[in-house]
Computed example of a mutant assay.
Amino acid sequence: MTTALVYRAEEVTEYDDLAEAKAARGTTWVHAAEADRAEMDRVADCFDLHPLAIEDVRNNVRAKTEEYDDYTFVVVKLATLRGGETTFDEEIGDEPIGIFIGEDWVVSLTPVSADSIERVRRAVTSGDERFLHRGPDFTAYRIIDTVVDQYFTLLDQIEDDIEAVEDAVTTSTDIDTLEEINSVRRELLSFRKLAWPAREAVGVLARGDPKQIQEDTEKYYRDVYDHLVQLVDLTETYRDLASGARDIYLNTVSQSTNEVMKVLTVVATIFIPLTFVVGVYGMNFADSPYNMPELSWTHGYPAVMIGMLVVGLVMLGYFRREDYI
């Protein structure tokens, strides 16, 4: 779906013909949502957009900013959580938005539907004064700003996952807990791949390097840049928390294993002398003057059993006193 809006201080007009919208007086904004190859080519032909820039939108390249003779090209990424059977099955999905900022026009292209851009469009059509008295660089800023705001929402969901993991590692050593930790780490890695390039792309606009960015609009891009710096810092902090949760989990598993091994070692140690006793008395050599005399003793068997029980109890008491068990 492609829409063309032309707005100025007095009015907002929607056009069906792209060429007519481009030639109209005021700021022209053309937005192509869920655009296929043919629709992108149609918009590119009208505004003389470079084929390589269009290919970057189609191929979903990393976020970046490039300057051309007549316009500035910006790629940012829409970020969403793709649902799974559980919270930790979700994955971060990203879709490109190509923004072309001209002297008196702005074009936005995306192969998917974007609610964030639709909110900006509704603000323009409703006659928001912030748009009507500014140029295309401000419209591009609002698009990028809404995309970055979604990053905060996404990071809040990841933060909830981290808190759930931190609660789980102190109470459970199940393998599912480790899988949840690894899932959160993958989410953070995917999010980092979104935030870092976006920060670099917006940084170019915040410095006012492209000639299409007006001086009074640079402060808005600097605000978005500050948000992205905050997002990157939070991402690094959350990665440290996820790594710490994994270390706690591994230490908990190791401690649990040590406790089990300690109990098994105590049991084995108690049975070592008992095994020695039954081994010695199991050597029943007949017709020899060196046979053990107690073998023919009437109470020999119960005496040996009582002796073994006493040895076991003494060793068990010693281990308990030394806090081995």
Rank of each mutant, 00 (worst) to 15 (best):
V6I: 06
E10I: 02
A21N: 06
A32E: 00
A32L: 03
R37D: 12
R37Y: 08
R37P: 07
A38R: 07
D41I: 00
R42E: 10
R42K: 11
C46V: 15
I54Y: 01
I54W: 04
D56N: 11
V61R: 13
E67F: 01
D69I: 01
D69E: 15
V76F: 09
L78T: 10
L81R: 05
R82C: 04
E85S: 14
E85L: 09
G93D: 14
F100Q: 12
A114S: 13
D115G: 08
V120D: 03
R122F: 07
V124F: 05
T125C: 04
G127M: 02
R130F: 07
F138D: 06
Y141T: 01
I143A: 07
V147L: 03
V148G: 09
D149W: 00
F152D: 06
F152Y: 13
T153G: 14
L154T: 06
L155S: 01
E159I: 12
I162A: 12
V165C: 09
A168I: 02
A168E: 07
T171I: 12
D174Q: 09
L178C: 04
S183C: 08
V184L: 02
L188M: 07
E200P: 02
A201H: 02
V204E: 06
V204L: 05
L205T: 04
D209G: 12
E215K: 13
R222T: 13
Y225P: 05
V232Y: 11
D233R: 04
T237C: 03
T237M: 13
L241E: 13
G244H: 07
R246N: 11
D247Y: 10
Y249G: 04
L250E: 12
S256N: 14
K262I: 13
K262G: 11
T265A: 09
I270T: 04
F271E: 04
F271P: 04
I272S: 09
L274V: 05
F276R: 00
G279M: 01
V280L: 13
V280S: 01
Y281D: 02
M283Y: 13
M283N: 08
F285P: 00
D287R: 15
Y290M: 10
M292D: 09
P293H: 01
P293S: 01
S296R: 14
P302W: 01
V310L: 04
L313Y: 06
M315I: 02
M315F: 11
M315Y: 02
G317C: 00
R321S: 11
